[in-house]
């Protein structure tokens, strides 16, 4: 299996406040990696740094053989990083179909395929995004990222704050994406659901990678020590 994304000793700062102190992680082709850690440990900052939405102050980020460190964020997206940001951000004034059309890049994922994954979106193509329910907006955010035909999908808290039935639907979609061979970097709070889908896990603590290994090796002790509240 070849390495798709590699972070080595990445540091980043919000102005004078350092947020990442040395994050290392790797995602292989067709692999699902869970990025874990308590609140405020740097998971979202790591994702934002990968997507070039905030600059890294040091370290190395290589995606598909390309050094990302100096690229603007739209180039990272063009290279094949599809981000579903925290808080399901859609383009509120545009319709579902328009949201998807804006993001579309040539490839296997098209309108037909994303609406097959999320049939509910197919029923609401003409509706503006702001009139969708929270779960539907989350589906739209995932579908929009898929329309860019990413090689790596990054899901930042994709099921947060959703009703259990909707969560269930989204996890089913994530499992389907894994089966189709998509590489995924996943942030979520539900250890149970993550365990069912992730191959490997990386745990952050205070902006630093403190543990990484196979998902199956995340024992109760490790979870209690690094993830418990």
């Amino acid at each position: 299996m070849s390495r798709l994304l590699e972070l080595e000793a990445v540091t980043a700062a919000y102005g004078p406040v350092q947020a990442l102190f040395g994050v290392g992680l790797g995602v292989d082709e067709a692999e699902v990696v869970a990025l874990m850690g308590r609140n405020g440990m740097g998971k979202t900052t790591t994702v934002r740094t990968i997507c070039r939405m905030m600059p890294a102050t040091g370290g190395r980020i290589v995606f598909a053989g390309v050094d990302l460190l100096r690229l603007p964020s739209h180039r990272a997206a063009q290279l094949g990083i599809g981000l579903v940001p925290e808080g399901r951000r859609t383009f509120a004034p545009l319709t579902v179909a328009e949201n998807l059309a804006v993001a579309a890049r040539p490839g296997a994922w098209d309108l037909g395929r994303v609406t097959a994954l999320f049939p509910r979106l197919g029923e609401r193509l003409g509706q503006t995004a702001r009139t969708l329910s929270g779960g539907e907006q989350q589906m739209l955010a995932i579908a929009r990222a898929l329309m860019t035909n990413p090689r790596l999908l990054i899901l930042d808290e994709a099921t947060e704050g959703l009703a259990p039935s909707v969560r269930h639907e989204i996890w089913a979609a994530i499992r389907a994406l894994k089966q189709q061979g998509l590489s995924i970097l996943l942030i979520d709070k539900s250890l149970k659901e993550i365990s069912a889908v992730a191959d490997r896990a990386v745990i952050l603590e205070r902006g630093e990678t403190v543990w990484s290994g196979a998902m199956a090796d995340v024992t109760t002790q490790i979870a209690d020590r690094h993830l418990g509240v």
């Binding site: 997507c51 939405m53 603007p72 964020s73 739209h74 180039r75 997206a77 063009q78 981000l83 940001p85 951000r89 383009f91 509120a92 004034p93 545009l94 328009e98 949201n99 059309a101 804006v102 993001a103 579309a104 890049r105 929009r144 990222a145 329309m147 860019t148």
Partner: peptide, 24 residues
């Protein structure tokens, strides 16, 4: 057009448009 939609999307959120691979 797709151009116009992207323009309106960029007004709604610049960073999200960039995350879709478009330069606002």
């Amino acid at each position: 057009s797709r151009f116009g939609l992207a323009l309106q999307a960029a007004r709604a959120n610049r960073q999200r448009v960039m995350a879709s691979g478009i330069r606002p």
